[in-house]
Design a protein around this nucleic acid. Structure first.
Lengths: 245, 245
DNA sequence: CGCGAGCTTGATGCCGATCAATGCATGTGG
DNA sequence: CCACATGCATTGATCGGCATCAAGCTCGCG
């Protein structure tokens, strides 16, 4: 037992956007090598966030956007009376912090659901650079617009779907995003609790649990705690589209 | 009775942003006169939309943003099975169409709830101009960010509030925005039906109607069809904040 | 091993949906 | 001007889905 202590290298010393394996999912989408170098110059720092810790909280001064490099986050907003609502789950390549631009303060909390790492993108420098690089400008606008469209989808879900439809939509969305990242579309491990899923979907944790059980009884899923096996994706899709009617 | 027929001039021949009475609410916020002239140059056309008509529909090609100049709109998204969800109501000075940037197609319908008029803002020209005018760039980003924050607020409402809280929050938001535009905060005329309110709030029209009646019984509102008199704004506020607990 | 956080499952109750009838305002044609 | 149609709103009765309350269960971890 005289061996040297293990050196855990979670990341290379410096990973530039230009050589990041997330570049096709993240801010650099569609940029040339030359442009990427400019972006590299402003995305200089990285930050690790331990599971359960907040990347930022509502009320914090806004200075940077964050691109998830590894790990998993939730964002949530809170009402004065303590009620809160999970507004989204973010995985590798996704941008967090857009809420802060409007008022120079963050309006939600971003919490790591597992040990995570983000790239820090100083917002004012991004603004400046996007004035020069129209491809970057365009892509940044697209990202914000898609966030708005995503939110509208969640509003539709919250406003007009029943519990099982909501969970089905949630699972399809998750598997879709995991597939984009090269993971299996049928086998996944949930990073969040039933309560967090429930908060996102406007349901209580018991209702989420029951919906999982029902999907299992119906042969749509195999559920073992947080390990989910999607056996019948078509059935999920039909639930969402309301073909049941 | 030989007088000339009355000439109804709904608008001056051309209203530049620089002389528009909405400029403090709209895209020009915080811009200098010089910058405003540049903006005027790209906001060249206006469009009138009759009550019930769509400014655009989901699937339409995206080319422009629209600033409401007069009138009132709703936006709504639809699921494949026909269910739809009102995602917002827009009044003078507010921007419509941000959803289209992400995919170059609109993802929602924008429908006029009364005869309305919008300023057409060609998006590519706006992009171009905002590369030159950092104030414009910043303000445009703020507008998008605030839209995201607003959506998060609606998600909180849909996910965790009960019917009367939702309606109270809706009314407070409306009166707040009307006040900003110089209207009375206590007396308003709803531009939308109970069903549209219900769709926005994730409720059925009967539930909306009952909530109105209850507010009237409690002396919080005076309700006569679409004419609403807010008698006790503090009571509404307390409902939203959950001080009832 | 035993604790505790998270999950499952059952029993019960309530809020809001649904179904149904009536009321009210506006408009249209006889 | 009235009769009638139409669209929207109100109100009542009933139903059902999800919340709530309450046990147990599972699994990871100190």
């Amino acid at each position: 037992m005289e061996a040297a202590p293990p050196v855990i290298r979670l990341e290379p010393f410096k990973v530039a956007c230009s050589s990041c394996n997330l570049r096709e999912l993240c801010l650099p989408v569609g940029m040339s090598n030359e442009q990427l170098e400019r972006l590299d110059a402003i995305v200089a720092t990285r930050r690790t966030v331990a599971r359960g810790d907040a990347l930022f909280r509502a009320g914090d001064a806004f200075a940077s956007l964050y691109a998830v490099r590894a790990g998993f986050f939730k964002t949530r907003v809170s009402a004065e009376d303590g009620r809160d609502q999970v507004t989204g789950f973010q995985m590798a390549g996704e941008l967090i912090g857009l809420d802060g631009i409007g008022t120079d303060r963050h309006t939600c909390d971003a919490v790591a659901l597992e040990d995570s790492q983000v790239c820090v993108i100083p917002y004012h420098q991004l603004e400046e650079l996007s004035r020069e690089l129209s491809d970057l400008q365009r892509h940044f606008h697209r990202i914000m617009s898609r966030e708005i469209v995503r939110d509208h989808g969640v509003m539709l879900l919250l406003g007009s779907m029943r519990a099982e439809e909501r969970l089905a939509a949630f699972l399809l969305n998750l598997t879709q995003r995991l597939r984009t990242r090269g993971f299996s579309a049928s086998s996944l491990i949930l990073r969040m609790t039933r309560e967090e899923i429930g908060s996102y979907l406007g349901l209580k944790l018991e209702t989420v649990s029951r919906a999982f059980s029902r999907f299992q009884d119906d042969g749509i899923l195999q559920v073992k705690q947080r390990h989910i096996e999607v056996l019948d994706p078509d059935a999920l899709q039909k639930l969402v589209n309301g073909t049941s009617c």
